[in-house]
């Protein structure tokens, strides 16, 4: 679910003039992370309370005091310590693949971690994080009150691997390469945007439903086929997907 009025990405510009974006975490993933963390706080507290029960044998009063203090300390320090040790992540955020970071794309300082966690009670007003939730939903970068004070944002930690282009074209016969002059013309005429979309589709083809896969490659082939008319024997028996693969190999690998 995308937030109501905020951006889906945080755009940043480095001092070297390079621009890049960080995907912002949505309210649903943040809410689920919060539930996981609440569960974690409950679990840690009950485990420590089990140990405190042994103290109750000697002094029920001290055990009672420790239980009160432990719950308060764990609920206050859990977020601070986790975000400090795991660079902006708690258990819930790790599970959901999200992370808190400075609004400028940098790791948080200790002061930022402490301030955003100290302001949690204000975000929790009046019940169930209504103030924080509403603020996050309407603020530009999905920030709750604590995030605004601390200048922090919650982003999605994306693990992206380099696309394996070579594997895509490796060991496959390309009938279009039999006509180098036409291949050169195709390379010259294809629009970069179309080529990019086609390459993207080829890289992700295994994730598509069979019907969607047929439809997507039919549309792409319809864009590419009219650019250059290859002889019938070169395209005979080629499915749309196969044609697109061959055409894109020419575009990205040249005539090699």
């Amino acid at each position: 679910m995308k937030a109501l009025f905020n951006e889906s990405v945080l755009s940043l510009r480095t001092p070297e003039g390079m621009e890049f974006t960080l995907p912002l975490a949505g309210p649903v993933s943040r809410l689920i992370a919060l539930w996981v963390d609440l569960l974690g706080v409950g679990l840690i507290t009950s485990l420590i309370n089990r140990l405190i029960d042994f103290i109750a044998v000697f002094s029920a009063d001290i055990a009672g005091a420790l239980q009160v203090l432990v719950f308060f300390a764990v609920s206050l320090l859990y977020g601070i310590l986790c975000e400090w040790l795991w660079q902006g992540q708690t258990v819930g955020k790790r599970v959901l693949g999200i992370r808190v970071m400075d609004r400028d794309g940098l790791p948080m300082t200790a002061a930022q971690i402490v301030v955003r966690n100290l302001l949690r009670p204000v975000d929790m007003l009046p019940i169930f994080y209504l103030v924080g939730g509403a603020t996050a939903l309407f603020s530009r970068y999905g920030q709750r009150i604590g995030d605004m004070a601390a200048n922090t944002v919650v982003v999605r930690s994306v693990e992206v691997a380099v696309p394996d282009i070579r594997q895509l074209f490796a060991g496959k016969f390309n009938s279009l390469l039999e006509h180098p002059h036409l291949a050169a013309r195709l390379r010259q005429r294809v629009a970069p945007a179309v080529a990019g979309i086609a390459l993207d589709a080829l890289l992700r083809r295994e994730t598509l439903d069979p019907e969607a896969r047929v439809r997507v490659f039919a549309e792409l082939a319809a864009k590419l086929r009219p650019l250059v008319e290859f002889p019938a024997e070169a395209v005979e028996g080629l499915s749309d997907e196969h044609f697109v693969r061959n055409a894109i190999e020419i575009v990205y690998r040249g005539g090699k």
């Binding site: 992206v160 691997a161 380099v162 696309p163 970069p192 990019g196 993207d200 890289l203 992700r204």
Partner: peptide, 9 residues
């Protein structure tokens, strides 16, 4: 290029 996957990486 419009290569989004590589751009994201």
């Amino acid at each position: 290029t419009a290569e989004r996957e590589l751009g994201r990486y």
